[in-house]
Design a protein around this nucleic acid. Sequence first.
DNA 1: TGTTAGGTTAATATCGACATTTTAATCCTT
DNA 2: AAGGATTAAAATGTCGATATTAACCTAACA
Lengths: 218, 218
Amino acid sequence: MPQENSAAKVLFHLKQDILTGFFVAGHKLKMSALKERYQVGVNPLREALSQLVVMQLVQVQDQRGYRVCPVTQTELVDIYDTRAHIESLCVGLAIERGDEAWEANIVAAAYRLQSNADLLKADGDLQAWEKLHQGFHYAIVKGCGSEELLRVRLDLYEKASRYRNLWLQHNAGHGAFDVNQMEHEQLVTAVLARDLDSAKKLISQHIIVPSQVLQGLL
Amino acid sequence: MPQENSAAKVLFHLKQDILTGFFVAGHKLKMSALKERYQVGVNPLREALSQLVVMQLVQVQDQRGYRVCPVTQTELVDIYDTRAHIESLCVGLAIERGDEAWEANIVAAAYRLQSNADLLKADGDLQAWEKLHQGFHYAIVKGCGSEELLRVRLDLYEKASRYRNLWLQHNAGHGAFDVNQMEHEQLVTAVLARDLDSAKKLISQHIIVPSQVLQGLL
DNA sequence: TGTTAGGTTAATATCGACATTTTAATCCTT
DNA sequence: AAGGATTAAAATGTCGATATTAACCTAACA
């Protein structure tokens, strides 16, 4: 992160601000306000915004500036549905291709997640928990060995996190930890047993079910 | 396309120039040269380049400018392998979800492709043929109904087209039309018969096999 | 009272210029 | 003559300024 140009730094922070919901959906991103917030000129800002347009987090209208992409129920369903399919594809390939090191990393990540769950649950530090959660699932899909596929997966995860954070804002310090924990154990078992069908079904449900809760918000 | 800002126009042309191979892999993209070529200032250029960085067609090194992303055999294999899986996923969902209008569009696109094949074959106009070819396959996958999935598919297609055009440059006016035509007929039959397994296998092979020819170039 | 026209304000898109950093070319030393 | 240090050249990243365009507010008219 350090020693990057301004545009990269702005991109990082602005992306966070959109994903976490600081700038809500549809919000007009005025240059003057952004200049003030990130302490840079218009050109680095335009570069960062251009990149966010490609990531489909920001919309641009010619001569009418930038605004945060709207959130819709249709997109929410589509993103989570697609995520379920992609994640399922990753898991399937990982089971086919994964080696012993891959298995070991899964066990390690599962342990880290489980042992910290209670701690973070007490603190209510959901962001930290989410990071471990992400690391656990990444350990599994990493076994697919395809950079392209993992990139697609990451893009969708980030787009989805915008909706997930929308839920966190309205349900601060609630958390459905316990349900997850059991699902994770089942998933690890199925994956290590190379049980393709079970693993695919489990991971698909693990993504789809929470998304149905989110649909109530929109 | 008209009435867009300079950056968008530059993005379009520069992207074409990279995908078609006018700017070869690894080529240093100097501001002075780009300014000359596209007749714009540095700022629209930087915006366009920033977007191409997100699309993974251009690399940026801080204070050391931009250059066209290198092509590697590893990436080639990965892209085509991933494309095969994604396209297969799209076809599968399309067979599940497609309606009658979808079927009609497939037949229409297949007809257009077939009836123009001989004409374009004589002219050697591969770009025009490729457009029809693309349209045919899009007609099929469109039935999956997922904007997100179709976007992922398009991104991968464009990344792959860089490698495909690399081949076209070295084999101008050759073309493997006939092999394709038969595969297309089989694919239409399987899709319209809602034969999931056959359709998935066919589309997967349709993508993988040509990629093996491309591997010889690198 | 609702609508439209005009003028005012604000924001955007682009350019030119400057400071900083990298790349190269030259020169000096051993 | 070779290697390293110094200097010159070129390219990059950023800012401020300007012209152009859209948004807004007011007022006059139907």
